[in-house]
Design a protein around this nucleic acid. Sequence first.
DNA 1: TATAATCCTAGTATTCAGATAGGAATACTG
DNA 2: CAGTATTCCTATCTGAATACTAGGATTATA
Lengths: 136, 136
Amino acid sequence: MPLFQVSTRIQYGLRALAYLAGKDGPASATEIAGAEGIPGKYLEGILGQLTASGLLRSERGKNGGYRLSLPAAEVTVLSIVEALEGEIRPTECAAGPGACDHDLACLPRRFWLGLKTAVDEYLRSRTLLDVIDPAS
Amino acid sequence: MPLFQVSTRIQYGLRALAYLAGKDGPASATEIAGAEGIPGKYLEGILGQLTASGLLRSERGKNGGYRLSLPAAEVTVLSIVEALEGEIRPTECAAGPGACDHDLACLPRRFWLGLKTAVDEYLRSRTLLDVIDPAS
DNA sequence: TATAATCCTAGTATTCAGATAGGAATACTG
DNA sequence: CAGTATTCCTATCTGAATACTAGGATTATA
Ligand code: FES
Ligand code: FES
């Protein structure tokens, strides 16, 4: 029903990162899942993706876990979203001309690109620190 | 893959309205579908929804069809989107407290509400005329 | 009466988000 | 070395939603 529904991947991922931002040492997937009420195995995959994209560092073995590789203030939400879902794009043809059978000047496309820009800017202007800071 | 993918309902609906905005008399679903390359019967349903919400006026019978009930400059894209998909809401809990098991002060929620606001404002600030006007 | 249109209801097909399952590789600990 | 806790990898399932199709009833025009 809603125009844009943020996937649970992103919601879970953001909450997990927020949890990690409020912690010193590493936290395991199980720990975060328990604290946030997220299915453990599912979260594992999400954290793996965030690790692969460089936002997290992982340590295997006992006492291992995940930790942020950057200070929370340097992690934009846009980078989180892109790590988990790839590029933001409201329509197929927003990717570029040719995806659609319309011509270069297609007017609706320009409109949708404007929406993408607006969303991108919001996400780029907010960091993980903003998300966890009540006074922002 | 993308964070927000605009549904074909909305894309088709917007293109149909743009087509109608560039025309004087009424246009039938078949005519619009042919011109825009949209499945006819599918478009019929979309146009029906736009009619029910008051954005279009329909005339039945031969030589009937659909026409805008307002000048293009007075139709915000937000009203189009809401007519076709209901309220815009990035997460369940953005609807209000209680939808989620978190407390009132849940920080991610405030972040997502901010995103909703940014999108709403973009959509409310653009009219159908902006969409079809190259110089906007 | 023939035709062209909206309107109404139901059904299908495919895709995808959201999760689950099982185990292999790795690292610490006693 | 044995045990345990962790990440990592791959495969599979499922429910819901999107996108579309089908058929016809109703209404107006010519
Ligand atoms: S180019 Fe895709 S709708 Fe026009
Ligand atoms: S209230 Fe829904 S995530 Fe916090």
